[in-house]
């Protein structure tokens, strides 16, 4: 995939009106096709940073460019066609009386034609497997389904970049899995994904890149395999890489971090090769 720069964040500082300095000079570039995870403690500036990606917050210093547009000069509702931002709590978004209307609402506000609206609604319903729920009232759905509807609302605007703010928080394993599979599918379709999360397993499993935020600065920006290597340092920021990574590091694995059990088994078996070979030959 071409290394097209979609979001460029340049020396961005942000101070909230109440005087809290949330960002202190962040620089980063998000390329087309990235699956980027932003991690960090509460209050480290993750969400503040992400809200700069679609102009919800305008930097107090520095600049943010999204596909060449400076966010300070654009309205958020216009930016919503470029960057889709899915909030953590779907209930902050839903208010119409059927799922179908809910998805169409944003399109109608942006004055799409009727055919275009119908077309897009159908597409989105199919993509998120919501066809069966189209006439349901959003509030009568389960949390997982409501979250899918919220994603659908954003997806209908067909943005290239998606920002998910803690999509799995408060979900059970199955719900988290279903929302992550949706995100994964968007990524394979060519969308660029930014995800804010506390779940390191999720980062290890899905992300191609992890940005660690601390006190308003991005201190690590690397693929998870590299970022999780120095896990003592991460521990200081109260971030814990998945247990399998910790285990591998403790057992003396020190090239790059191991991210899943499969890699771990391969590595382990390669280390105790003689025995394994003996066993297999005996068998």
């Amino acid at each position: 995939m071409a290394n097209k720069e979609l979001i460029v964040v340049q020396d961005v500082c942000y101070t909230y009106p109440n005087g809290v300095e949330a960002l202190r000079g962040v620089n980063l570039v998000i390329n087309k096709g990235d699956f980027c995870a932003i991690v960090g403690q509460n209050g480290s500036g993750k969400t503040t940073l992400a809200k700069h990606f679609n102009g919800l917050l305008k930097p107090t210093q520095g600049n943010v460019w999204v596909e060449g547009y400076n966010t300070t000069q654009c309205r958020v509702s216009e930016m919503s066609r470029l960057v889709g931002y899915v909030f953590q709590n779907p209930d902050d978004m839903l208010f119409c009386s059927t799922v179908e209307e809910e998805i169409a609402f944003g399109l109608r506000m942006l004055r799409f034609t009727k055919e275009e609206i119908n077309h897009r609604v159908e597409n989105v319903l199919e993509l998120l497997k919501l066809q069966g729920l189209r006439t349901q009232h959003p509030f009568a759905l389960s949390l997982g389904d409501r979250q899918r509807v919220a994603v659908a609302c954003v997806l209908s605007l067909a943005p290239e970049i998606f920002v998910f703010d803690e999509p799995t928080t408060g979900q059970d394993h199955l719900g988290a899995l279903s929302i992550m599979s949706v995100i994964q599918e968007l990524h394979t379709k060519g969308c660029t994904i930014v995800i804010i999360t506390h779940d390191m397993r999720l980062v290890a499993e899905y992300a191609s890149r992890v940005i660690v935020m601390n006190r308003g600065q991005s201190i690590i920006d690397a693929p998870p395999a590299v970022a999780f290597k120095n896990y003592n340092f991460l521990e200081e920021l109260s971030l814990r890489p998945p247990q399998v990574t910790q285990l591998a590091t403790l057992l003396g694995h020190d090239e790059h971090a191991i991210l899943n059990t499969k890699d771990f088994c391969n590595w382990l078996s390669s280390r105790i090769k003689p025995n394994v070979q003996n066993q297999t030959s005996e068998a």
Binding site: F95, C96, S97, H137, F139, A140
Partner: peptide, 11 residues
């Protein structure tokens, strides 16, 4: 009002 009332009922 209709939105709130049906929402409250459905939820």
């Amino acid at each position: 009002g209709v939105g709130v009332l049906t929402g409250l009922h459905r939820a």
